[in-house]
Write a protein that binds this DNA or RNA. Structure first.
Lengths: 225, 225
DNA sequence: ATAATACCCGAACATGCGTTCTTCGTCAAG
DNA sequence: CTTGACGAAGAACGCATGTTCGGGTATTAT
């Protein structure tokens, strides 16, 4: 009673998909049916075609019939789906935040991080994003470690309530990452860690919002002792 | 005396390069010589071939002769600079950790995250990586928030000292993320947050290491209140 | 047993598509 | 003027490659 039929994707299906991916990666263009056959030990082109049809029906690939090498993996981002974000510098508790100039071009940057735009909330206007590397343990109240990379969007000094922002407090010589709330007599800066207390900034004290934090990335291996 | 020969890259060269890039991005595979001709208003395939030869000599493209659509832009990372990591499930303090089976194939996954391999420490063996979404605030001692995505590498139950691992403690019904240290009478699990105390596991107590944490990603916008 | 699927082959077929050959026009050097 | 390099066409040629078809073998349903 259709025992082994379970859920599509037989070993051959997977083998073909794997080959499609590795070939495309290696050569820069898709393979032919015969090449697929050779790689997956299928001796007949018609059988390869048979499986490709199935994979297309399952939505795993797209085919352009009659076109040489007209096969593409649907879930595989063709290219340009990722972009580089320049690392503008380091963010340290006791120093101002380095912010790239408005005409800053990411081609100038030596260091950068690659982020798939599927990870970013607003892929439209990602041009201006920049990244900072966290220096020191002083931001643990923001759940951010030494060595973490924070990705920020410049906001032009503004911030909405509830946004996580990077703030420079000139009169305290202090940089911090906090959730931002405007209150009647000033501002409340709320740590991400719920066990820690907010700090209150009086209206009279100056406060520079350097950008909104959109993402934090921690690469564990780098910091292993 | 060969005055204007200087810079190569005529208007036609650039037009072809631009078309190659946009076509590849749009279709997922390179164009034919005839398609290039049509797009750049060159009526003869031999002329297109002529220009492609020049571009190849300049190092702008690579050609695989005799192969249909065997053209690739050299500077453009074709793809595979980034890969999908399947989201195997959620990690909750009071539940075991979902770990994909060894034959788990990422093609089966519905949800996934895209990570540039430049972000990963060991790009060689990235096949087995999987991701978990953190559910709840119970991992704040690991500097991990609700909604964060942790990327893990299966370790087969082993762990080296100093590695951050996901651990399941069957006798306590508890899942946790900690730095792992083997000690004489058992194990020490050290929180990432230096202000918090480690927990000690006696030799007699069972402890399952489900994987090593290699990266943590926090997308701030999702969690804004 | 028979029919219906699903899976697999090999070969013939028909295009797809790179290559090459011939021809032509322009322009600058000899 | 002749020559030769360069840019451009168009057509013919021929391998590359997708498609189709007749024919197999299992396994399962009727």
């Amino acid at each position: 009673m259709m025992a082994h039929k379970k859920k599509g994707l037989s070993e051959r299906h997977k083998k073909i998909l794997r080959f499609l991916k590795s070939y495309q990666k290696r050569e820069g263009y898709p393979p032919t049916i015969r090449e697929i056959g050779k790689a997956t030990s299928i001796s007949s082109t018609s059988v390869v075609n048979y499986y490709l049809d199935q994979l297309e029906k399952m939505g795993k690939i797209e085919r352009q019939r009659k076109i040489s090498r007209g096969i593409q993996l649907t879930d595989l981002n063709p290219l340009g789906e990722m972009f580089k974000i320049p690392i503008a510098g380091r963010i340290v508790a006791g120093e101002p935040i380095p912010v790239p100039a408005s005409d800053f071009n990411y081609f100038d940057a030596e260091a950068s991080v690659d982020i798939a735009h599927t990870l970013l909330p607003h892929p439209e206007k990602d041009e201006a994003l920049f990244a900072l590397e966290v220096d020191g343990d002083s931001m643990i109240d923001a759940m951010v470690n030494d060595g973490d990379i924070v990705i920020m969007r410049p906001t032009g000094g503004e911030a909405k309530n509830g946004e996580m922002v990077a703030v420079w407090l000139p009169e305290r010589d202090e940089t911090t990452l906090k959730y931002f709330y405007k209150e009647t007599n000033g501002y409340r800066l709320q740590p991400a860690n719920p066990t820690m207390e907010p700090i209150y900034i009086d209206k009279s004290e100056s406060l520079e919002i350097k950008g909104k934090v959109v993402m934090v990335i921690r690469q564990i291996d780098k910091t292993v002792v």
